[in-house]
Amino acid sequence: MSRKILIINTGGTLSAVMKKNGLIPGLSIHDMQKELKMVSGDTDIEIEDFCSVDSANIFPEDWCALAQKISDCRNDYDGIVVIHGTDTLAYTSSMLSFMLRNINIPVVITGSQLSITNPVADAMENCRCAIHMAASQIPGIFVAFNRKVILGCRASKVRSLSFDAFESINYPNIATISSLGMKIETAAVPERTGIFKLANTYSDKVCMIKMFPGIHRSFIESIAEQGYKGLYIEAYGIGGMPFLKHDFIGALDKVIQNGMTVVVGTQCRYEGTKMDVYETGKRAMAIGALEARDMTGEAALTKLMWILGMTEDIKEIRDFYSINMAGEMSKI
């Protein structure tokens, strides 16, 4: 019995065409139907356009609508593939991991570094991988790219030009494709922890900043003045921030006391934070900052947006953030 797969197109490079001002998404899903059927094997595919945009133009409201669409369709298909631009793909796969937690089918996001119209493109291979992962009957949110499958909340774009654009951060690949076929590491797939219930709310009052030598505490004050409720900081190393000349941690103390949720991550791609080692990290934890641990920046940010969309209760926020919801963080 062949699997029934829905392919949803949101645009991106995979569907791009050259126009006067450069490459833009221009192919509809029906324009790509022949190529998609070539790589679908014995699966029964249906295709649908959701939108057609460069992924730089994907916003949280699009995540909300896409999650609703996937939720509505989940019982009619064995799996779903989402075609998406690469620039914000990891943010989308992370947020869908939370909004669609415990979904009962595979949802696989993919894209490409070259348009499907280019004869040397990676597009068809990425679609082939995504379609067959969607037919695997292994539920969850995944990213398929360059002959590997990554857990959605562990994916990050690490190269801007290479076909090997995405890596799984601090977590093993879910599957790889070689001359032996697709090998799925079932032990790496997070177990469903409950029934599925769509949770596609979010807060748009979340900000992200990156530490740099010379950053001033006025950044924090201005963010609070603009009404932001959450802040994700890419700190140094395992969670370092200044507390001497410009008392950044002191400024964080004030906004946390006034109700803002602050999460501290790291600028380092791998291995995550460990804020109980140095004085600077211990100071941040003492004032109530939360620790991103080994989450990707994309997962840490979207998780904060998602939680603040569900509750404003400080204790509930802290509890939610400290729990591994979708495989986004390792056990302590």
Rank of each mutant, 00 (worst) to 15 (best):
E35R: 08
S2F: 06
R128I: 03
A286N: 13
F59K: 15
A199H: 11
H84F: 03
G230W: 13
V81G: 12
R3K: 12
M325F: 12
K34C: 01
I256M: 13
I70D: 00
I256D: 09
S115L: 01
K331W: 01
A16G: 11
K37Y: 03
I169A: 12
I58C: 02
S71K: 08
V39C: 01
L66Y: 02
K157E: 03
H246P: 02
S112W: 15
S55N: 06
R192S: 15
S52C: 09
S203C: 09
H216K: 07
R318V: 00
M329T: 07
L89E: 02
A326V: 13
K303M: 12
E225N: 15
K37G: 04
P25C: 00
L252C: 15
C268Q: 12
A65C: 10
T296C: 04
Y278N: 10
K274L: 07
G111H: 05
Y236S: 06
A67L: 05
S52E: 08
I138T: 13
V206N: 14
R101F: 09
I249L: 14
P190F: 15
G214E: 12
V189W: 01
T186N: 05
S55H: 03
R217S: 15
E48V: 03
A235V: 05
S178N: 15
F196P: 14
N118K: 15
G85N: 02
F145C: 07
Y321T: 11
I195A: 13
K303T: 07
L290C: 02
